[in-house]
Simulated scan of single mutants.
Amino acid sequence: MLNPWRLRLLVDLATYGTVRAVAQRGNLSASAVSQQLATLERETRTALLERTGRRVRLTAAGVLLAGRAREILAAMDAAEAELRGLADEPAGTVTLAVFQSAVHALAEPAVARVAERHPDVTVVLLELEPHESMPALRRGDVDVIITTTDFTGAELDPAIDLVPIAEDAVVLVLPEDHPLTERETVDLRACADQRWTFDVTGSYMSELATRLCREAGFEPAVICRFNNYMIALQHVEKGRSIALLPSLAADPRYRVAVRPLTPPVTRRITAAIRRPATPRPEITAVLSALRRYGARQALPEDPRARP
C-alpha cells in the first residue's frame, strides 16, 4: 500500500530537485528522506530514482508516480475538507504564496485575522513573485497565491479561479530633495536623464518599469538591481537613484517622496486558487480575509470570482 507521506516526499523531490531541499522543507535529515524514498521504491517494486554520486533525479517511472501522487494527495485533501465541512468551524492548513510588496500590507494582516477568527486554520506563508507563484499553484505546491492578472494569463485557464483583491498604483519614488518632488504628479518623460534602481531582470516589476520608460521615449539608465524593496528604498533615500515601485512597497519608514504618475498606472492584485472539486472552508476563510485587507477601493466583480 502506498504511503501518503512518502508520496509527498517524492512530489517535493520532483518540485525542488534535491534531497537536501526536500529535507529542509520537511525538517528532516537528508538521510531520512533518502531512506523513505528507498522504501517507496521497494513498496512499488520500481526504480523511481537515478543516483549519480550524491545527486538523484527521477526516472520516467518516478516522474509518472510523482504526477499521480499529486492527484492522490489532492483527492485526500478534498476528502479531509469534506469531513471538516461537516463541522461548524474551518480547519486545516493553507499554503499562501505572496509577492514581496504584498507580504506586509496584505498577507500578514489577513493571516492574523484568520488566526484570530479560525484558530484551527494554519496558514503557511511563502514569498513568491508572480512568475514563480502561478506555476507553483498549477503544480499543487501551494493552495492560494496573490498575483497580478496582467502577468499570469490565468484568465483563460479553466482550472484556475480568480478572486479580485485590490488595485495598486505604480508610483515614482524619489529622494526627498529631488527637484521632481515639486510636482504633484510626474510624467515619466521628465525622468529620461535619471539614474534608476530596478527589480532583478525578468521580474514583473522590472519588465513593467522597462516598458513604461520605453513608452515614455527613453531607455532607462539602470545602475543597480535589487530583489528587495527595502534595499531599493534605502538606495533612493540616499539620493543615488530613483525607482518605480508598487505603492504597497512604499514603506513610510524611509525618507523618500512618492509621486503618482501621469497618466496613472495601476496593477490589479488578484488571488488565485485551483478550481476545487469540493470547496475547502479553510481556503474560503483565507480568501475572505485577503479581500477584507485588500479592498483599498472597489473593483468590478470578476464573473469567475468565488466567495
Results as ranks from 00 to 15, higher is better:
residue 53 G to S: 10
residue 73 L to G: 01
residue 127 E to D: 07
residue 142 V to M: 08
residue 142 V to D: 14
residue 135 P to V: 08
residue 149 T to S: 11
residue 108 E to W: 13
residue 132 E to R: 14
residue 125 L to R: 15
residue 157 D to P: 06
residue 73 L to Y: 04
residue 51 R to D: 05
residue 122 T to V: 12
residue 127 E to C: 09
residue 58 L to D: 12
residue 104 H to F: 12
residue 154 A to M: 10
residue 145 I to S: 04
residue 88 D to R: 10
residue 102 A to D: 08
residue 86 L to I: 09
residue 111 V to K: 12
residue 99 F to Q: 07
residue 82 E to T: 07
residue 82 E to N: 02
residue 82 E to W: 01
residue 95 T to H: 07
residue 151 F to W: 10
residue 49 L to Q: 13
residue 65 L to V: 00
residue 82 E to F: 00
residue 116 E to K: 10
residue 144 V to Q: 02
residue 67 G to T: 02
residue 138 R to D: 01
residue 127 E to Q: 14
residue 140 G to C: 09
residue 136 A to V: 04
residue 38 A to D: 00
residue 41 E to Q: 09
residue 107 A to M: 11
residue 66 A to Q: 03
residue 54 R to V: 01
residue 102 A to E: 10
residue 35 Q to C: 03
residue 79 A to P: 00
residue 94 V to D: 02
residue 49 L to C: 07
residue 88 D to C: 06
residue 104 H to K: 13
residue 114 V to T: 10
residue 56 V to C: 11
residue 87 A to G: 12
residue 148 T to G: 12
residue 75 A to H: 10
residue 108 E to M: 11
residue 64 L to P: 01
residue 146 I to N: 05
residue 98 V to W: 11
residue 131 H to S: 12
residue 97 A to G: 12
residue 132 E to Q: 14
residue 111 V to A: 01
residue 42 R to K: 13
residue 125 L to N: 12
residue 68 R to W: 01
